[in-house]
Nucleic acid binder design. Structure first.
Lengths: 347, 347
DNA sequence: CTGAAAGCGCTTACAG
DNA sequence: CTGAAAGCGCTTACAG
């Protein structure tokens, strides 16, 4: 806001003058128009070189009512899920020539609102948004009405009709729970995350379905909500481990929680994987470096990013008709953190 | 580049008309000028509300020759060192009201060049750059000459005079090697990274100094250059482990390498920390979740980011006189990956 | 193949 | 306290 800066400015005007042509002609060669003689083209190019001209894309965009930027709003960067998502989005957007403007909400509505308007003010050509849980449809719908393409990623918003890319969370929760059940577990905790999140609800539903299918009861004392961080995992496992009748396995809302939980188990003298089976969600790189290696449900964050970028591009190009939805199929990655249940409850 | 988009446009003109004032007056209330009567202020504000006006900061910046964006160029996001750096920078820049434009080079000169000009074309108010190793001074000096503030972070460029924030790499390498020497190790590998990097050279110098001080010889067969990634760590440890006379300890250029090395040791049936002492550099979150927990030299990436953002801000505000240099002092974080040497060479 | 003119949405002296 | 006018750096029909 309080920014300001003196700019030494070689303008297209200067280039044109130096080359002995009009501003319009200079602009034409800049943009590679075919109906410019090779001779003047060279003259202008030489002038740009000599003067050290730098194109003012901002001014050009203003005049031609275009945009070369895209806004990207995610929760935070500390969770590798989002770094990976960002990598995918960024890499793909790059190919299309967009420049990305980044914002992180830390799941605060106020920040998300601010970020959204900042991006509009900066004339972004479109927005990729991983929305704060419980976001109202209002804000986003307003943006869409303005004609700015939006694609939601990972987190849906009720009553908003726009592109969405996500993972089949129900299925993900289901295959995780099924895996645990197959290993003989009958008391399976559901650890971390918050029930306001659509992804939480869906993973929980999958978990429930697997229980129903196996004829297992669901004990709500075994679901504990915490932030989806390592800290949250520590808190969650602690609660469940000190309960009167602890579970023999835990399905964690995401890998961060799973890792926090396993760290805390070690801290308390338990052996994760043996004393309690753990499965995570996302398959972040950390999943593979922990001992035991984390069995988890991959949500392909990088791929999600790539899809999101492509959808946005299609919309910006006007190639989109109806709002699209892309749901990736999750995959169970079996590693080392799930042993068989020894008996009904932990020894 | 190929971007374009129709914008439904409520302009300040529209707002002014709707409120029955001139465009200039509307602009004044927008910017909170004191010499506007409360009555017209309210009228204009109401009009903005009703019309759903969105401020075009880009146009405003163009007219007033200002900028509200900052360019940030780093190597990649997969390395948590950079995520952490980004978090620090982003968080601090946010406070000043800047919007950040992100670019990743993957250590390619060509990409860095492209990113740099893209950012200039987008009229960034300043640039924070973690330069590709072996960057020429030309590019950056040109930008500085244009009057665009630059702050270099983590990686210096020879013959460029501008703000720099980094870590005392010499000292870092020294305390790492000293720690290992104190533990009785006499053959200490230096693993990963590339010798073109100023930070590599400096850490190596510290490592050398510690050896000199202890009267230990330096065996150049023990320094192996690889990419500073987990993969690089795997390759490096493999090379050194299969050598005729393997070292008993390794100082790794960064934590990614250290973790890769330890993973590979496990893979090969060795126990990291016991069969070979390992110390890393950076103290990324992963350092703490690996078993054994990694002993490492903290480089405070988040803090570096905060300092970089502040320096840039000072420059943009014109509050800067001479180029500043901030060198953070590294700190040895002792955890579990360094046992005492058993005897001269590994059993 | 090239130039003169209008205009993108805003701000900024300058008058009144 | 408010308006008319010029201009930021560019592009885009429209003539010639």
């Amino acid at each position: 806001m309080k920014t300001s800066k003196k700019r030494s400015h070689v303008t297209l005007q200067d280039v044109a003058a130096h080359a002995g042509v009009s501003r319009a002609t200079a602009s034409l060669v800049l943009r590679g128009s075919p109906n410019i003689s090779e001779a003047t083209r060279q003259k202008v190019l030489a002038a740009m070189q000599q003067l050290g001209y730098v194109y003012d894309r901002i001014a050009a965009n203003l005049r031609s009512n275009a945009s070369s930027t895209v806004g990207l709003i995610i929760m935070e960067l500390a969770n590798p899920f989002y770094s990976e998502l960002l990598v995918g989005i960024h890499q793909e957007l790059d190919k299309f020539g967009y420049t990305v403007i980044l914002g992180t909400t830390f799941d605060s509505h106020a920040i998300q609102e601010r970020l959204l308007s900042t991006m509009l003010e900066h004339r972004v050509g479109g927005i990729i948004l991983s929305a704060v849980p419980g976001s109202s449809s209002e804000g986003v719908n307003q943006i869409i009405k303005l004609g700015i393409p939006v694609v939601l990623v990972g987190r849906k918003i009720a009553n908003v009709s726009c592109d969405y890319v996500g993972i089949d969370n129900v299925r993900g929760g289901q295959i995780a729970a099924e895996h645990l059940i197959r290993k003989g577990h009958r008391r399976i905790a559901f650890l971390g995350g918050f029930s306001q999140l659509s992804s939480w609800q869906e993973r929980k539903r999958g978990y429930d379905q697997a229980h129903y299918a196996a004829g297992l009861p669901i004990d709500n004392n075994l679901v504990v909500e915490t932030p989806a961080t390592r800290q949250g995992g520590i808190a969650a496992i602690q609660k469940v481990l000190t309960a009167p009748e602890p579970p023999t396995a835990a399905f964690c809302y995401n890998d961060m929680i799973a890792i926090g939980a396993m760290m805390q188990m070690k801290e308390m003298g338990f052996v994760p994987g043996r004393d309690m089976a753990i499965v995570g969600f996302d398959d972040i790189p950390e999943a593979t470096i922990f001992s035991p290696k984390l069995t988890t449900v991959s949500s392909f964050p990088r791929l999600m990013g790539i899809h999101a970028a492509r959808l946005l591009h299609a919309q910006i190009e006007g190639a989109a008709d109806e709002p699209q939805t892309i749901i990736l199929q999750p995959e169970l990655i079996v590693r080392e953190s799930c042993s068989y249940a020894k008996n009904q409850t932990r020894a």
